[in-house]
Amino acid sequence: MPIILNHVNCIYEEGTTMEVAALKDVNLVLQDEQFIGLIGHTGSGKSTLVQHLNGLIKPTGGEIYFNGEDIHDDDFDRKKLRSQVGLVFQYPEHQLFEVDVFSDVCFGPKNLGLPKKEVELRAYEALKMVGLEDEFFYQSPFDLSGGQKRRVAIAGVIAMKPQVLILDEPTAGLDPKGREEILNMIRDLHEKMKCTIILVSHSMDDVADYAERIIVMNHGEVFLDGTPKEVFSHKQELEEIGLAVPTVTDIMHQVKELGYPVDESVTTLSDATDALVNLYHNVKKYY
């Protein structure tokens, strides 16, 4: 059940002097169970784009289809859509409000009108899924550490069992280890829940290791779209719009420019290590 965006436009303050085009003719097909990285600068339109996917913002032009239905048709159930396309905002811990962690996670499924038992079961599963220990379940969410709060907030969306899970900058403000833990957790979620993941980020290093497809946004348009290898092969274009390729890819490009026969489309640390070590041994053998 893919999401299809057909010539989607979004213009703020249309018809006034303050007119800003946040999205310009965006065409995308987001396939099931893909792990997608959505990259762009602040103001590139990536946050606006994801808010279109669950119907929080209505496009000023074009259509969005979910399961083959136009989500802005009059008889389309947008509440159900929001449960199926889960969106975790930036700094999601800022939306916690209940007296304890468990009730907060229950908020989403409860809004779906599910029976109490089902609500609690889902909340429990979601909290397990994000790796929060039982001892925290009945604490006030405001007493948790930053990383734990964020997990609770993510669980609040997972508890609705979405088929598509969108996370807007889920690692913002966390320390290196915290970033890695959240990203690994998202990868586990992807494997266990078999849902589509859309990871919004402005860091190439964050998504390079995880995503199977990368969409790069610039000035409200889709700038590049493809596998990490394909996207990072456009090193120059990316640098022109102020985005850097991952450090290892950058190094491989430089090695290639020196005239050594290496694959410059490498994106992960281990691949780069292998390539460099191989190169080193070959050169040594030759002499």
């Binding site: 929080l56 509440k79 929001r82 975790v88 800022h94 939306q95 908020f107 809004n111 779906l112």
Partner: peptide, 13 residues
């Protein structure tokens, strides 16, 4: 506006 949207994403009405 942001919090409202975030809660709407959790199906708040």
């Amino acid at each position: 506006d942001k919090i409202m949207k975030a809660q709407m994403a959790r199906c708040a009405d």
